[in-house]
Structures are given as C-alpha cells and as structure tokens.
Design a protein around this nucleic acid. Structure first.
Length: 288
DNA sequence: ACCCAGGGTCGTC
DNA sequence: GACGACCCTGGG
C-alpha cells in the first residue's frame, strides 16, 4: 500500500498530547519531533500538529480522509460539549480547560476489550508493552519508513495463542482472562454486532460483564473508548475515586468512598455526558 | 534491599 | 457485600 497524506486546518479540540496521553489508547508513541505515530486497524499513521495545521500521513487501508474523520471523531462538536460541561461547576470547568484538546477516539471493539482486560491492576507502560508483544507475535506486519509495525491481531489469529503463550508475553494473571474472552468472542457467546444497534447502554454492559476479566470499570472503558461510543457511563478507578472524593465527597479516608456514592454524584451532575466528564477529570488529576 | 502501587477482577466467605 | 490474592515492572 502507498503512503497517503491528509491535512486539516483550524480543527477545534485537537491537541496531540491530550488525545494520546489521556489514557484511552495504548498504541500511540511520541516521536522526536513531537508528532505521534500509532497503529489502528490496518493502518499506521503519523499525526503532526504545527500551529493550526494538522498533518496526517501514513499507510492507510482505505481513504485517509474517511479513516481519519472516523477514528478521531471529527464530526462531533466538542466545543459544544465542553461549553455544556463548563456550566456545571468550577471543578469541571477547570478540568475542561486543562484537557481542552481531548477527543475520544473510535477504537476497534475487540482491541479495546482485550486492551482493557490487560489494564486491570496494571500500569500504562506495562500495558503498552504487553499489547505490543501480543501484536508483534500475532498481528500483521506493516513496513513504513524502514520501520516495522504490527497490527492488533484478529480473533482468528489470537485463537492460536494458549494461556501459557499469554503468560510468556508478560500478561501475568490476565493470561487466562484473555484466553477465555477470546474463545467466548470467537464462539459467538456474545453477539457483538447487536451492540451497535442496541440503544440501551445497560444491556450491552450486562453482556460485556459476562466476559472473563471484564468487571464494571473495564466494561465502562470499553463502552466509552471503543467505537460503541457511549458517553452515559462513568468508569471508576483509583484516580477518579481520588478526584471525586477531593472535589465533592471530601471523605478523610478515600478508600471508604463507595462506588454508589460516586455514581450517583456523576449521574446527577454530568448525566449523559458522564463519560466525557470522567475523562477530563481523570486526565486533569493524573497529569496535574 | 525492600516496599509500594499501578485505569480491577475473581473466587471465597 | 467485604476481603485477600493475583503477575510483573518501575520508582522511591
């Protein structure tokens, strides 16, 4: 395949660091020149921003404009969303100002499911390296600029991996969870295609929870960060618990803050924009 | 050297 | 519903 280029100007809500370092994705890396290169689906893409000009360049399976618009969620009006969130209170206003360049990517569903199973009780550098090794062994090779990249493997190829293979790739105790979920997905124990037609987020969530290694937090991340794109979820992890306690609950013993309490505050304050609010708050608290 | 925490989930009580 | 265990890695 040949290299393609696509340039856009004056795109609102588009800062490379905010998008790629806000914790939603694991396969993007910063280059020496400040641009980022990543692999998604069967694409290798480099994104560079200079002043108000964004240049996308890479090996793309399809039309680069369409691929970029879809993946970066370019048709959504983030300015409007941020404006709406900013009126809620001072805290969310501050977090939105901090992460004003965030966009939530439309990531491939299977990759998102397996990536967030790996994320459980894990840190981001290690999550990235595990995914990289799995892709290197079972993904498809793409060469570009004398470098070799590997796509996230298809279910078909992942079925070749045993529990022990995942352990050897550094997945740790998540090995069996990956193995079982891959089997469940490829045997059609859950019908993934129906999820895109389903209006009720809760129904998809229930099915996600039947997968091995998918609990409430991972399910919400999948709903928010995959191309299912549900904003009416609120993934609660250590950082969100921390920031919600600090801003709203103010319990001296943070570990005693119940999930229900956090959920009800989120729903009441952020409603159907909860997922986005969570992401701004998470990024703000974790970085600052 | 030692301890701790990291985008939690699972099995057991 | 609460509680501990869980693989591994980087940082204090």
């Amino acid at each position: 395949m040949q290299e393609q280029t696509y340039v856009i100007k004056n795109q609102d809500s588009f800062e490379l660091k905010d998008i790629f370092d806000c914790g939603q994705c694991f396969r993007w890396n910063e280059e020496k020149d400040g641009s980022y290169t990543g692999v998604f689906k069967e694409n290798v893409l480099n994104v560079k921003k200079e002043k108000n000009v964004i240049t996308f360049k890479g090996i793309i399976n399809g039309n680069i404009k369409e691929v970029v618009e879809d993946y970066f969620d370019l048709k959504r009006d983030y300015s409007k969303i941020k404006q709406e969130l900013s009126t809620i209170d001072e805290n969310i206003l501050n977090s939105v100002n901090y992460g004003k360049g965030i966009r939530i990517l439309n990531q491939e569903l299977i990759e998102t499911i397996l990536s967030f199973i790996i994320s459980a009780n894990n840190n981001i550098p290690r999550i990235k390296s595990i995914i990289e090794r799995i892709s290197g062994k079972y993904g498809k090779q793409i060469k570009w600029n004398n470098k070799t990249y590997y796509t996230f493997p298809t279910l078909e190829n992942l079925k070749k991996a045993s529990v022990e293979d995942f352990r050897n790739l550094g997945a740790g105790f998540r090995d069996i969870r990956l193995f079982e979920t891959i089997n469940m997905l490829s045997e059609g124990k859950v019908n993934v295609k129906n999820w895109y037609k389903e209006q009720d987020t809760k129904k998809i969530r229930e099915e996600l929870l039947t997968l091995s290694g998918v609990g409430p937090k991972v399910a919400d991340c999948i709903l928010l960060f995959s191309d299912l794109k549900r904003f009416d979820v609120f993934p609660i992890d250590v950082w969100v618990r921390r920031v919600m306690n600090e801003l709203y609950i103010k319990n001296p013993d943070e570990t005693k803050v119940s999930k229900k309490e956090i959920e009800s505050i989120a729903k009441e304050k952020f409603g159907n924009l909860s997922g986005l609010a969570q992401q701004y708050l998470f990024y703000w608290k974790r970085e600052a």
